[in-house]
Amino acid sequence: MRIESDCFSLPKAGNRSDEYEDASHISTHVQKDATICRFAIADGASESSYADLWANLLASGYCFGRFDGTTIHKSVSPLLKAWQKKTGGKSLPWYAQEKLSSGAFSTLAGITFRFANDAESAAFDGIAVGDSCIFHVRGDTVFSSFPLSTVDDFGRRPVLISSNAANNARLHAFVHQWSGTAEAGDAFWLMTDALACWLLTRYKEDRSVIRRLLELDGARAFNHLVHEERQLIHRKGHAYLRNDDVTFIRLKLVKGT
């Protein structure tokens, strides 16, 4: 068994590429008779500062194996210190100081696969905070979705992981965990909220969206899809794809080594 991965991303239309505040990370640890693969995305909240840095710390922290869903505060603690170290000690205007003291905020969705090198299935477990999602796709069907499963689940005010510990007091109640078994041939898609919501909208109308994403053959095709779907208007009057940073990790579990 092996896992093929592609990562696509695009900033919000109207923003520069250095203003993109999502993050993604991938890691593979090959051991003697098993492999551990971790994948994570994070979406820094636009109403906070240094959110890109925080999202990167969370996604990479997950892929370095530092996350345990049952003790989220302990997992986040060294990352808070890293964020504070990188953002502290600067002379800032009053508003930047105030914003900094509130901390940055970000979602996190991560999934870990463990499998023997000659296996045809893999155990997986995932965690999520906020509205970044992971979809388990089998054939042309969304087999399961995590942690959100309907368009109505996407609000604009989720509880997120903060780089200021004082804002994380109730965080443990918002950590979602997931586990299961995947088979060779299955796909897993990690998507930040705008894209995840778009997928569920399109899927409800027509399952062909699955084939469309499976067949995306590179960054150019992804960019074209995003631009097109941001322009297309849904019958409810809004764009099919909300204008936001978008990040997509596409995984395929494949037989063989």
Partner: peptide, 8 residues
């Protein structure tokens, strides 16, 4: 103007 966390 974009995502505002509920815990901000």
């Amino acid at each position: 103007i974009g995502t505002r966390p509920a815990n901000l």
